[in-house]
């Protein structure tokens, strides 16, 4: 009985030319909807406001939140593996100050960029160890880690500000081939992340573990090592994000950037990763980060108070999740 509708579907789908089907699946994917959203918003706003379409403003939309996009790539990978990290904000606070302290105490700039990234990876490994081998839920581990990092930052530095960094330290203020470096970092992190998740064995294993840990284990995947890997990658991405954050302005405050983890998780979720694990891509999270910045920029031009931005974020998450649920229901019904 259950077999009878199957040939019908197969016949239907072969009837349509494959390229239109593929186009449709791209357009109606989460990434497609986000990309269309960004383009529509940019076009409409550019037609309406001359200063909106100024290259400087358009560049700012892609550049200003690039560091969030880099962290969101790591967060997406982590959420796909079925975990979450709510210590991102605290870790960025610690690593940014580490980077600044190193360069002002005489280390060469490149060392002060590399070390925070390595430390980020180590913190990720510690989180991953607690989750994978000691079986404590990631939300609890990273909640604890967040307190530890934030507290240590206050104990050691207590709200000081670092100035007088050498000029070659400001990585995020550089531009290569006429394009600001944060945009490069965002593009490279996204493309490498997307390819790695799609084609590498570990990337596929992360999807498998997030989708169904037991099935993944039975098919020979070492789920503990896979979880560790996801956490380490996330830590490294947060490290890169921290260096971009630390080098964008001429001073670094020893404090935790407020609400950063929420912005990063929002980008990942609006980008289409399911919080239940197993689905989503890192391209979506980058597009979501850009869209959020474009919305903020539009609000400024439409004289809407930026104090409403958080409400918009909340509504965006809700809409994304609802669309996802409706889409799944339709698939299930078919």
């Amino acid at each position: 009985m259950t077999a009878t509708p199957l040939p019908k579907i197969a016949a239907n789908s072969t009837a349509a030319p494959t390229w239109t089907r593929r186009l449709r699946s791209i357009i109606f994917s989460q990434e497609g909807i986000l990309a269309i959203g960004i383009i529509l918003l940019l076009v409409v706003m550019s037609l309406g406001f001359e200063r909106f379409r100024a290259p400087r403003n358009l560049l700012d939309i892609f550049q200003a939140n690039a560091y969030i996009a880099v962290a969101a790539v790591g967060m997406s990978i982590l959420i796909i593996s079925g975990n979450i990290d709510i210590s991102v904000g605290s870790l960025v606070g610690v690593l940014a100050i580490l980077s600044g302290t190193m360069v002002t105490s005489g280390f060469p700039a490149w060392v002060s960029w590399i070390v925070p990234i390595i430390v980020g990876g180590i913190v990720g490994a510690v989180n991953g160890f607690f989750v994978a081998y000691l079986r404590i839920p990631s939300i609890v581990v990273t909640l604890g880690m967040s307190s530890i990092l934030k507290g240590s930052l206050i104990i050691v530095l207590g709200g000081t500000t670092i100035y007088n960094m050498p000029t070659d330290f400001f990585l995020a203020q550089q531009a290569w081939l006429g394009i600001p470096s944060p945009i490069w970092f965002m593009i490279i992190a996204t493309v490498v992340g997307a390819l790695w998740m799609r084609y590498s064995a570990t990337g596929r294993a992360i999807y498998a573990v997030g989708g169904n840990a037991e099935a993944a284990r039975l098919s020979g995947i070492n789920s503990q090592r896979t979880t560790m890997t996801a956490f380490i990658i996330n830590g490294v991405m947060v490290g890169i994000c921290s260096v971009m954050y630390a080098t964008q302005f001429n001073s670094i405050q020893a404090s935790v950037p407020p609400g950063l983890e929420l912005q990063v998780i929002t980008s990942a979720v609006v980008g289409g990763v399911s919080i239940l694990g197993g689905t989503g891509t890192v391209i979506g999270s980058t597009l979501a980060t850009i869209l959020l910045r474009a919305i903020l920029s539009s609000m400024v031009f439409l004289s809407v108070s930026p104090y409403w931005l958080k409400s918009v974020q909340g509504v965006l998450i809700l809409v994304t999740v609802l669309v996802d649920i409706l889409r799944r229901r339709r698939v299930n019904r078919q």
């Binding site: 929420l262 104090y307 409403w308 958080k310 409400s311 974020q313 909340g314 509504v315």
Partner: peptide
């Protein structure tokens, strides 16, 4: 998480 942002946003707005 969504309403964490939404309700805070309403308060700020």
């Amino acid at each position: 998480l969504a309403t964490l942002a939404l309700y805070r946003g309403l308060a700020e707005g």
